[in-house]
């Protein structure tokens, strides 16, 4: 079965009220064509998990502006004034998570772990309501795994088996999110035949990838 599909068919898997992970760091490494199509499709009440809400006209920021998110789970919202405005108006729930914790929670979600123990956030409001676990003499916060219904991933090159290579800092959260969602949709700048990517160069193995669209 071919994993290559159209944007329209791939986005059939994104429905109202779902949790969606979207790769990218301030828009770099975000699958913009998939986001474009999701804005047009108008899917509502999504929980978005991403590093940040990027800018008004870029990356995840456009789903904030189009009011398609009911909640954003991110480490940073400072570059998108609309996120802060909607949050203060009570129209968008925002959960802020330290970036390294967010990365490990997503990795844990895909790796079958019950959570991670991190020193990050101890003694801050991030620790409120969370379990503190002592290992030897050091305290850690228990942070639970994160999973999603769908992950929207940007890759530089995909082969037809779904193996992925990323480019420069567009990698960021993409390989982690590709492990943590039930359905993984990849927007690849280049699509090559199976066997054209050296197995040693594969960053995300193709078994994680369900659908590929041309970016």
């Amino acid at each position: 079965m071919s994993k290559i599909t159209t944007i329209e068919q791939a986005l059939e898997f994104v429905q109202d009220n779902m949790t969606v992970m979207i790769g990218g760091f301030l828009g770099v490494g975000t699958p913009e064509r998939l986001v474009d199509a999701l804005v047009i499709k108008g899917t509502k009440n999504l929980i978005g998990i991403a590093n940040d809400t990027a800018m008004l006209d870029k990356g995840v920021g456009r789903l904030v502006v189009s009011r398609q998110l009911k909640k954003a789970v991110v480490s940073h919202i400072g570059t998108n004034p609309e996120t802060g405005r909607l949050m203060n108006a009570g129209e968008l729930e925002v959960e802020l998570i330290p970036q390294g914790t967010l990365a490990e929670q997503i990795r844990a979600g895909g790796a079958g772990l019950g959570g991670i123990l991190t020193p990050t956030g101890l003694g801050t409001i991030v620790a409120e309501g969370k379990e503190v676990i002592k290992v030897d003499d050091r305290e850690f916060l228990l942070e639970k795994p994160l999973k999603a219904d769908v992950a929207l991933i940007k890759a530089h090159t995909a082969d037809t088996a779904g193996n992925l290579i990323f480019y420069r800092s567009a990698r960021n959260f993409n390989p982690l999110m590709a492990m943590a969602a039930k359905v993984v949709i990849v927007e690849a700048e280049n699509i090559v035949e199976k066997g054209q990517i050296n197995p040693d160069h594969v960053v995300t193995p193709g078994i994680f990838v369900d659908w590929i669209i041309k970016g």
């Binding site: 940040d52 390294g100 991190t118 990050t120 991030v126």
Partner: peptide, 25 residues
């Protein structure tokens, strides 16, 4: 040695990004 650089409640809430991890590690 405490540090506060990620939010001013009610005014400015950019988020912590990677700062909390950096200071802990």
């Amino acid at each position: 040695g405490n540090l506060a650089n990620w939010m001013v409640p009610g005014k400015l809430v950019p988020g912590m990004g990677g700062a909390m991890d950096l200071v802990s590690g």
